[in-house]
């Protein structure tokens, strides 16, 4: 009797693993079957056109660039912030009320839905004080508002979203540095600051890189923040050509799209109405994510070998 129960339980466990795998691959196969026709060299190298006509819709060059931009800027904002917080929590924080509040606040922040961060961002960044991040609206009587949508603004929203995750991973990495390293450094007369910057952080490098990749993965996949803080334009709306070096600041202060909003816009739920292009862009997005995962695996395994 017990044996039957055991084997039932076992087969359930194997079955659930099997389902996970099958689900994973059936999603990818489904996307591939639906979207492979859309993918071509042209699809990857031309900018999208604002039109409902599928044959003139162009490609996904600027959405890919948009994804790249917000990911890089978002991480650049979040990382120093997160490292500082992680260092504070693991090296400086004393056991008191403020510290435990900090810890709870970061936990709560990690649970904030992205749509809430997005609507908060809309209300905050349209304040005129933040106009330098997007553009000020000029020429409307009685109105003093910032546009509140740009790559900068969107990246800041993203930074807030990934902050708690990056903090947690960084904190673990910093904590994993053996106490003996610190003691050795301090014993040699180094100050606490230089111990942290010259000894602790370099030793925690691998963990911090993992945190970066984790954060990047989350930024790449988000739609709600992009939808509200980047606006989901189809084209890059700054001065053209947007990729020109002289225009970099204007491009970042203007709007565009990312792969996720491109997929949303072209699915039946958006108004673009070109599902095949949405599937094509999904394939590209998944390939980017697989590449990122592979890099993370590579870094992880290389580090592991070193430690052994």
């Amino acid at each position: 009797m017990n044996k039957i129960r055991d084997s039932l339980q076992q087969s359930f466990a194997w079955l659930s693993a099997l389902i996970t795998i099958v689900a994973c691959f059936s999603i990818i196969v489904f996307l591939f079957l639906k979207g492979y026709k859309a993918i071509s060299f042209e699809f990857l190298t031309t900018n999208p056109n604002p039109t409902f006509q599928a044959q003139e819709a162009g490609g996904i060059l600027s959405p890919m660039a948009g994804t790249f931009l917000i990911t890089i800027i978002g991480i650049l904002i979040a990382l120093p912030w997160a490292i500082a917080t992680a260092i504070y929590l693991s090296e400086y924080a004393k056991k008191n009320l403020i510290t435990s509040y900090l810890k709870i606040a970061i936990d709560v922040l990690s649970g904030v839905p992205t749509i809430v961060i997005a609507i908060f961002g809309v209300a905050l960044f349209t304040m005129p004080a933040f106009g330098f991040l997007s553009s000020m609206i000029e020429g409307i009587e009685g109105a003093n508002k910032a546009f509140g949508k740009s790559f900068f603004v969107c990246s800041m929203g993203m930074a807030v979203m990934v902050l708690p995750y990056v903090i947690k991973t960084c904190e673990e990495a910093v904590k994993a540095v053996p106490v003996s390293y610190r003691e050795a450094s301090l014993a040699l007369g180094a100050s606490k600051r230089s111990t942290i910057t010259k000894v602790v952080l370099p030793s925690a490098k691998r963990g911090i890189i993992t945190a970066v990749i984790l954060g990047m993965g989350r930024i790449i996949g988000d739609t709600a923040i992009v939808w509200l803080l980047l606006g989901g334009s189809i084209r890059m709306t700054g001065p053209q050509p947007w990729w020109h070096f002289a225009n970099w600041l204007d491009t970042l202060k203007n709007t565009g799209s990312t792969l996720t909003t491109y997929i949303f816009f072209n699915s039946p739920a958006g108004e673009g109405n070109k599902a095949e292009l949405a599937f094509g862009a999904s394939i590209v997005l998944i390939i980017i994510i697989i590449l990122l995962n592979t890099v993370a695996d590579f870094i992880g395994s290389r580090g592991a070998v070193k430690e052994e």
Binding site: N49, P50, T51, F52, S135, F147, K149, L230, G231, G232, S233, I234, R235, T237, G238, P239, Q240, D250, N254, T255, F265, G270, E271
Partner: peptide, 27 residues
Amino acid sequence: TTVQPIAETVAAELMKMNSSLYVTVVG
């Protein structure tokens, strides 16, 4: 979002004609 594609097309044409015109269109 219904008007967005035509607005973006108009923006693109006008920006081609005017080098110091910047138009941002969001949907």
